[in-house]
Each structure stands twice: as structure tokens, then as C-alpha cells.
Computed example of a mutant assay.
Amino acid sequence: MPKVDTARFLADLNELRQIGAYKTGVHRPTFSPEDMESRRWLMERMRECGLEPTMDGIGNVIGRHQSAGPHLLVGSHIESQNYAGWLDGALGVMAGVALARAGLPVDVAAWADEEGHYGGFIGSRSFIGELSDAEIDRLTNRYHGKPLRQALQEAGLAGLPRIAMEPGRHKGFLELHIEQGTQLEGSGQRVGVVTGIVAIWQYRITITGMQDHAGGTTMAERRDAGLTAVRLLAMLDERMPMVCGPRSTWTCGRIALDPGASSIIPGKAEVLFQFRDVEETVLARMAHCLEACVQESNRRERCTTVLEAMSLSKPALCDPAMQAALAGAAEQFAPGAWRHMPSGAGHDAQYLAKRMPAAMLFSPSIGGISHHWSEDTKEEDLALCVEVLAEGAARYLAG
């Protein structure tokens, strides 16, 4: 059985959180000085445990094990959302380093921009060959508009080759992550063996009415795009529960009204709406519900609504053999205190799963909080989960 130095693992995590520290969390946006400092810091930790680290032209840091194999690939990401938590992503990367230090034949990866400052999962997508130069040319930062090419230049990455997956090198990919929810904490359990990663179906809803004066236009004459948007969203919230699954979610992430002034009736509304589930049949039902609600809105309202699908990803089911290895390890270290569960968030593992067996392990999140600087997990749960991950990796490699 591999022996993990949990004290060193926790010390590494706490040292990493000092880079870009913000309150009790971190602020390490992709390709910021803090992000690049953390990547260089990680490369030193990789060297210390015998890995050969490289940072590539998209910012991926990959530490290669020097044994003959078979190898596992273990990792996550170390950049953060703005003013966010210290564990989201970093936990999975430092767990990989801990497994390498324990003598397991693992390559460790810190993928670039999982958080989507420039495009979402560009590091893991680059590794599996799904990020083209043309896409890199057109991507910009969603917060301040900086072109990705400029960011790579400023970070010292321009012109470096991008590392591609080496066929046959890896038996599978493992990612340890905080749950970012309350299922484990609420049930008093300490480990989650992930069954699959949800698909996210993202839509743009554009509603066109008539911009007009808020005082001079009677209520009967109005074509108010804002009110139409509100009524459509209320209809969706009423009808989605009739077609969803037990862990489906749906979210209106943005409502933009044009021109957005208090004394002007909005002539246009743009809504970003998404839903998530791990079952494709459920996703199809939810899509049909959305389409029906838009159709009903166009029948009732004086404004015209157009629905546009922006991205329709596929669920990624975790590999059964890897799940079984993790489940056996969870029962060994936390008998009766673990569960099978889906991931409601997207992760790099869903892209690696397109090219190799992949699985995930969840640790509890205190209060379910994530993407916020107060995100946290008990140290004893972090230590337990890295031990479960190591034992699961050893079992899978031996299988």
C-alpha cells in the first residue's frame, strides 16, 4: 500500500495558498503574475519528488515520472476564479504531487484556464488535440477583453510548443476535487466516488420589443422586452421541475437590458440560460421544455423571442474499473462514510475522458461554498481523501 505523507501534502497546499492570497482564499486569474508564480512554484515541487516538469505554450505544467510505467495521469488546475477559494483545482494538483512523492508511477498535470478566463478548459483541450491555433487567435478574456495571444506573450509562453497526449502512456486520469456542494457534508460522509460529470447546455435567449419612453407610453401600448424576459424565466422555473432529473439544475446567469436606463422601456433583453444533468435523456427533455416555453412566450407576448444554442456538451461517465478501485479504497479508509455521486460542475476530467479512462474523487465542502474566498474543507478530510486516492490509484494500476 502506498504511504502518503499527508503532513507534507497539507503543508504544500497551505504554501500554495500564499501565492495570490486574498482573505482566506486566493486571487490567481489565468496568466496573471500570481498564476505564473504558482506554476513556477509547482515545477519546483515536482522536481523535488523526482518528476521532470515542463510548462508548455498554453500554460500547462506537466511533470513526467521517470519509471517505465504503466503510468496514471493525475491533476487538475491551479488558477482560480476572481477572489475565490484556495482548494478549487489546487487540491487535485497537489494530490498528484503527493502520490508521486509516495512512489506511485504518476504524471502530474496542472491544466491551464479550467476556470474559463479566456475560453474554458483550454489546457486540457489543448492536451487532447481539441484546441486549434485559430481558436487561440480569437479568444479573449471575458473580464477585460485582453486577447489570449497577448496574454501568452506577456506570460512568456509565446512560441513554446504545446504538449500533446502521448498515446499509450497513461492507463487513466484521476482528479481529486472539492465537491462544491452539500451532499457529502449533509449526509455526514467524507468521500465521494464520482459516477459522471454533467453536461452543460448553454443558450442565449434574445427578446426584441420596442424601446420607448417610460412615462409617455401607456401600459397597453408597451412592448417591454424586460418584462417578457421575467415572465419567460418564471415559466421555465415552473415547468422545468416536471421534466428534470433528481440532480438537474438550471440557471439564468445573466439578464442584460438595452438600453438599461430607469426611464426607458427596454427594447431588447438578452438572457444567458443553462441547465445541467448527467443523463442525455434528461437533457433532451429539458431542451424540449425550454423550446416549448419560448414558443408559448411568442404566442402570448407582444415581443419576439429567439432561442440560440451556444454550447451543448456531452456528459462524461467515469470509468467503471477506476470507480471500483476508488470505491474499494474509500471503504478501506472510510467504511460506511462514502458514497457514489455525480458531479454537478464541469472539470478537466470530462475532456481527458474522451481519450482515456477517467475518474474523480470528491472531498466535502464546508457549507457547500465554492468560487468564493471562504471556500474550505477540514484538513482531516483532505488528508483522508488523498490517502483514498493513492490507494485507489494503486489498486487500479495493479488490476
Results as ranks from 00 to 15, higher is better:
Q295S: 15
E296K: 11
N298Y: 03
R300A: 13
R300D: 02
R300L: 13
R300G: 04
E301A: 14
R302Q: 06
C303T: 15
C303W: 02
C303I: 15
C303R: 05
T304W: 02
T304Q: 14
T304P: 02
T305A: 10
T305K: 00
V306E: 14
E308H: 09
E308P: 06
M310I: 04
M310R: 09
M310T: 00
L312G: 01
S313L: 02
S313W: 05
S313Y: 02
S313D: 07
S313M: 06
P315E: 04
P315G: 05
A316L: 06
A316S: 11
L317C: 00
C318I: 05
D319C: 03
P320D: 12
P320L: 00
P320I: 03
A321R: 14
A321Y: 01
M322V: 04
Q323R: 15
Q323N: 13
A324C: 04
A324R: 08
A324D: 06
A325C: 07
L326N: 14
L326T: 14
L326D: 14
A327S: 13
A327Q: 12
A327T: 04
G328V: 01
G328K: 03
G328C: 10
A329S: 11
A329P: 01
A330V: 02
A330H: 05
E331G: 05
E331Q: 15
F333L: 15
F333A: 04
F333H: 15
A334V: 15
P335W: 08
G336Q: 08
G336M: 03
A337C: 10
A337W: 07
A337L: 14
W338P: 03
W338V: 07
R339S: 11
H340R: 05
H340M: 03
M341C: 07
M341L: 15
S343L: 12
G344P: 06
A345R: 14
A345Q: 13
G346S: 12
G346F: 14
G346Q: 13
H347P: 03
D348F: 02
D348N: 10
D348V: 04
A349P: 00
A349R: 07
A349L: 07
Q350R: 15
Q350N: 07
Y351A: 02
L352W: 01
L352Y: 05
A353M: 01
A353G: 00
M356V: 00
M356S: 01
M356Y: 09
P357F: 06
P357N: 06
P357C: 06
A358E: 08
A359W: 07
A359Q: 07
A359H: 05
M360I: 00
